[in-house]
Amino acid sequence: MLKAIEEMKDRADLARSLYRGGQISRIEAEEEIRPYAEAFNAKSRELAKKYGQRPRLFSITSYLR
């Protein structure tokens, strides 16, 4: 599972760079980032529940800043 998340992160990083460079639109960047955000949030919720804490959720908007 870690390998899949790493691949999603690489795609998200690439989409972020392309968006910041003006090569793709925001909608296209969000479509590329969304799978990573969902996987990250699921893992965050899982770990937070395990340790009795609040999850630190991933926001696409803040990621694109």
Rank of each mutant, 00 (worst) to 15 (best):
R26P: 07
L47P: 01
E31S: 11
K9I: 11
I27T: 14
D13Q: 12
I5G: 01
E32P: 01
A15T: 04
Q53R: 08
G22P: 01
E32M: 13
E6N: 10
R11K: 14
L2A: 08
E7Q: 11
P55F: 01
I60S: 03
R11A: 15
S44A: 14
P35D: 06
M8N: 08
A29N: 02
S17C: 12
R26T: 11
R34I: 05
K49C: 00
R34W: 14
S59C: 07
S25D: 15
E30V: 09
I27D: 15
E7A: 13
S17N: 14
S17L: 14
E31L: 12
R56T: 10
S44I: 00
A39S: 03
A37G: 03
R20L: 15
D10N: 13
A39E: 05
N41C: 05
L47V: 08
L47F: 06
Q23Y: 10
R16M: 05
G22L: 04
K43P: 00
R16N: 05
G52H: 04
Y19H: 10
S59P: 06
A39P: 00
P55H: 00
A48E: 02
Q53T: 08
D10K: 12
R11N: 14
E28S: 13
S62F: 10
A37N: 02
E7V: 10
E38V: 10
A12W: 00
K3V: 12
R34A: 11
T61W: 07
Q53H: 06
L2H: 07
Q53P: 00
L18K: 10
I60V: 14
E46H: 06
E30Y: 08
R20F: 10
L18I: 09
L14V: 10
R65D: 13
